[in-house]
């Protein structure tokens, strides 16, 4: 293991007030992710995995507990500083791709570089490099709507890669894709990880999670499993359920 964790959750709580009742989306979660890891955070809808992802992504702040990203306490940062840290250290891949429909693919990929304040020529150079890596450089002047789902997801991966982030955060990246394209996207993430990129993948799909190096399973806002994925997802589920009883 490396010296310092990239992502460190220290007893994180996220509590939503819904009328009279409190909803504990995260109920005392602690874990660390180190450089070079490929972690899948898995859970059913409502388990708190999305809240977890939002906090890792500096899009939301915990009600209690400390979140250190690259050693910095995120909850103590201002809005603009959070934007800055997202820009510098995180690359997002969303389920719905979240490409801006009015911009072409190249312009979309250039966005994080633009907010970095890079020169126009350097933005284009790095964006094209990222598009080459995902293999859709020839589509760079198309609008997102002219591309297939798989191609759009590649574009969003290129956008995440372009800024050379420390952590790539993928939120259900295959949720809107067919199984063949899903496999391609996951294979690409595995390949990126092999090249040294740290990847955190959020999914509800056991077979997707099984391809990560490490699995964190969240249930009712608590971590019920944290370790290597078991070979067979069905067996693993059983194991996890047994484990849940003991937590």
């Amino acid at each position: 293991m490396n010296q310092k964790p990239l992502v460190e959750f220290q007893n994180i709580y996220k509590i939503y007030q819904m009328g009279d009742s409190q909803v504990r989306a995260l109920d005392g979660v602690s874990f660390s992710v180190y450089e070079g890891e490929f972690v899948a955070i898995i859970g059913q809808s409502g388990s708190g995995k999305s809240t977890c992802m939002n906090i890792i992504g500096c899009l939301d702040i915990p009600t209690e507990g400390t979140y250190l990203l690259n050693g910095a306490d995120v909850s103590k940062l201002t809005d603009d500083e959070q934007s800055e840290i997202r820009n510098q250290t995180l690359g997002f891949i969303f389920q719905q791709y979240n490409l801006l429909p009015r911009l072409n693919i190249l312009e979309n990929v250039k966005l994080p570089l633009m907010y970095k304040g890079l020169k126009e020529s350097e933005q284009t150079e790095r964006a094209m490099e990222a598009l080459n890596r995902v293999g859709i450089a020839d589509k760079c002047h198309h609008k997102p709507s002219q591309l297939s789902g798989g191609q759009q997801q590649r574009a969003s991966i290129a956008r995440a890669l372009a800024g050379s982030p420390s952590v790539i955060l993928a939120d259900e990246p295959t949720g809107a894709l067919d199984s063949k394209t899903s496999a391609e996207v996951i294979a690409f993430l595995i390949q990126l990880n092999a090249l040294g990129n740290t990847i955190i993948l959020i999914t509800h799909d056991n077979s997707i999670a099984a391809q990560a190096k490490r699995v964190i399973r969240i249930h009712d806002g608590k971590i019920i499993y944290d370790g290597i994925p078991a070979g067979d997802s069905i067996i693993r589920s059983t194991v996890l359920l047994q484990k849940e009883g003991t937590v």
Binding site: S83, R86, Q88, P112
Partner: peptide, 16 residues
Amino acid sequence: TKEIGIRKSLGAKKKH
């Protein structure tokens, strides 16, 4: 609003 959210997630600051 969604576009603004995407831009912010990519690092857009208030001034942008």
